[in-house]
Design a protein around this nucleic acid. Structure first.
Lengths: 144, 144
DNA sequence: CGTAAATTTGCAACAATGTTGCAAAATAAA
DNA sequence: TTTATTTTGCAACATTGTTGCAAATTTACG
């Protein structure tokens, strides 16, 4: 994954590409995304970072990243909202998941299965599909 | 759909089958589910019913219906939780969606496409699937 | 490098959403 | 009809998300 230095530089260039200031909070939050192999929800940031940044800042940072297409949301059946890093094909105002998501019932982790494409869905007549979200739940590789 | 009388009787029998008391609140909430062709979220109940019942009661009623397999949750990418009536194949503690969900970007409605089966997903090695959730977003029949 | 302009952050205050305990009311059982 | 059980509504609280604004940080530029 590279040295701390390299990661910081990579993060900075992501931010600059999106025309965002390179700040400590944004850098730290992106680091957390890169370190965790799974999706993160809001409360994770406060925990993982040891309350070093404000709740409000986290909300605003995540919203900014969403707007710029740096991260994407993953659907859940509870009130939490989960976010994961986007791959390069996502651009501002045009996010499409090309992969499915997997939620492990054991460890609770949600991960992006980048290699697994979303299937074609045959909708009833009269419906137009723009985006397909697939979340599979079960037991992940590490937990079985 | 039948007379008011018949619906009330049908609802009562659903409740009795689940060993639940037949109360005014539960009957009204089930009525709302039957009337609306789509999925409902918590705030809908307070609006649709004209604040005739308590917030707490709605929360508890929905939880009870979930526990008994009368309704199911639909995944969303925001903090709202959406619920829809289950079909007969759902039983207590064993809910599986056999259909996909469609969220219209125009009207905001979420509906169950009962005729459209969830696809088979080929997962990477080491993953075991228990349940597959599919939410397609786009434009629905009525909005195009 | 130092200064001005622009952006971002943190605080305070608030709004919305969800939870728990408990007494009163409604329902079911006898 | 009476009693036992279940459900409801209230109050109080906990959690989560939002907004305005001044202070701090970052960027742009000489």
């Amino acid at each position: 994954m590279g040295t701390k230095q390299q990661i910081t530089e990579r993060i900075a260039s992501i931010l600059r590409e999106s025309k965002l200031s390179v700040t400590e909070t944004r850098t730290k939050i992106l680091e957390l995304f890169m370190k965790s192999n799974g999706a993160l929800e809001h409360s994770d940031f406060e925990k993982l970072a040891g309350q070093s940044f404000d709740r409000v800042t986290v909300y605003r940072t995540l919203q900014t990243f969403l707007d710029k297409g740096i991260i994407h949301k993953i659907p859940t059946t509870d009130t939490s909202v989960r976010y994961a890093l986007c791959k390069s094909e996502c651009s501002e105002h045009d996010h499409h998941d090309h992969h499915i998501h997997f939620k492990c019932e054991e460890c609770g982790n949600t991960i992006c299965l980048d290699e697994t494409d979303v299937p074609q869905i045959q909708l009833p007549k009269g419906y137009a599909a723009h985006n397909v979200e697939v979340v599979v739940s079960g037991v992940c590789k590490s937990c079985k």
